[in-house]
Design a protein around this nucleic acid. Sequence first.
DNA 1: CGTATATTTGAACGAATTCAATTATAGTGG
DNA 2: CCACTATAATTGAATTCGTTCAAATATACG
Lengths: 249, 249
Amino acid sequence: MPGSCLVSKLLHHVELSPDDRALIARLEEAERPHGRHEDICRPGDPVTDLYVVKEGWLYSYLEMPDGRRQIVRIHHPGDIVGLPEIAYPEAVTGLRSVGPGLLCPFPRTALDEIFVRSPRLTALLLTLALREHAMLADLLRANSRLSARERMAYLICELTARLRVTNPDLGDTLPLPLSQTEIADHLGLTNVYVSKTITAMVRDDLLVRTETGLRLLDEPRLRSLAAYTDRHTRISTDWFPARTCLAAE
Amino acid sequence: MPGSCLVSKLLHHVELSPDDRALIARLEEAERPHGRHEDICRPGDPVTDLYVVKEGWLYSYLEMPDGRRQIVRIHHPGDIVGLPEIAYPEAVTGLRSVGPGLLCPFPRTALDEIFVRSPRLTALLLTLALREHAMLADLLRANSRLSARERMAYLICELTARLRVTNPDLGDTLPLPLSQTEIADHLGLTNVYVSKTITAMVRDDLLVRTETGLRLLDEPRLRSLAAYTDRHTRISTDWFPARTCLAAE
DNA sequence: CGTATATTTGAACGAATTCAATTATAGTGG
DNA sequence: CCACTATAATTGAATTCGTTCAAATATACG
């Protein structure tokens, strides 16, 4: 089998025992294909499953009664989707696909199993959740305090850093399958102004457009525009419990 | 002793065994007073401790090199502060006090203990972290997609809902020790416009000012202005592991 | 009581929105 | 495979919500 994106992403952070790997493997047992622009789950739906993304991009979003929308997080292959939801009986955010792809649904109870059997894996899951929290705080800062150009630079830096975790030889080419309306709903702008902002950045030799995305001409300047901090490297795993917990069966 | 705010807040969500209570009690062993406008920790500092808030308000913030600031979360008595930080070796956010108060610092390793000894408590901590995540997503939506008045309504609803968890007889009176600059840095506005917005809301009979805060004249309208969802009631604890984990000593 | 810190108010400005029309792109069926 | 239609992106003009700047007033602290 072709090693899972999830396991390779996790191994990027911490070593895993065969037992732990077996626990993780169970999260990817089922498979479910989806088309483009498909609603996997709407805000307020009862939450039954979580997902591992196997192929394609998706996003989690909140919406207002009048149609205003906020895309809270963009998901890539290897991501676990829905962890923040399990604190509530109903989905906080909706989940929608960008293009066609493949999801691995697994039940909430699979986490229970992990909690009782492996404190180490539990610590890793918690850490992933906390890292997402930090990244959400960064996005909040961006959308609250940065100009449109700075926000766009932020998004570019963030996506590039994230994709490089599993694809280190990405270079300066960023695939960007999101529509400008989706980018706008993520960055708290309008589709019209996203278009104008990208055009202006191209004019100023920060970017060029490619078939499928963007090429970054001046990454240091983009990073400094957004005052970007990479939250994907250097996570702290040294405090993880080493012992394995023996559950009372 | 006067029952701790933390324990009473946790019991609001889930029952705890004596063992679990003992584990929690250790988080409040030390005490450290602080003054007003005091920096407990600055962004980028090495993280050693977490805190339980015993008295006073504080906030976590991010800042830009040029001084722009984003207040990410406001902390009240009974809150655990710093959980999102432990994923990284250095502090993501700074921590600053609003007025004078009392903090209980405890080392990261106290969590390790909890992870190995009590899956149930671990699940509770994870759930609290995930709830904070959901609330951060709400703030992101507010700051990205709401008008100044709607954001102000959001903040009022959110603070009211949070304070009512430990103080159900709050009524329509919201204590608000934050300066307008702090409110602005939380909502992604300027201090000037916060002032103008509050004045306009008072004119429109949504609020009146009191000595120490605000009185809400039309809570339903405030909630509908912000399309507010209360994330403090009804968290999902049914999936928590019931068994206690017996650690290999 | 005096000084530093907050808040208020007004006027001018500007970044992003809204509205509307045009061009380009991507899916779909003949 | 091309034409047709729906969706997405671009462009420009008018507008607006919130900012910036500056001065006056109020409040809090030592």
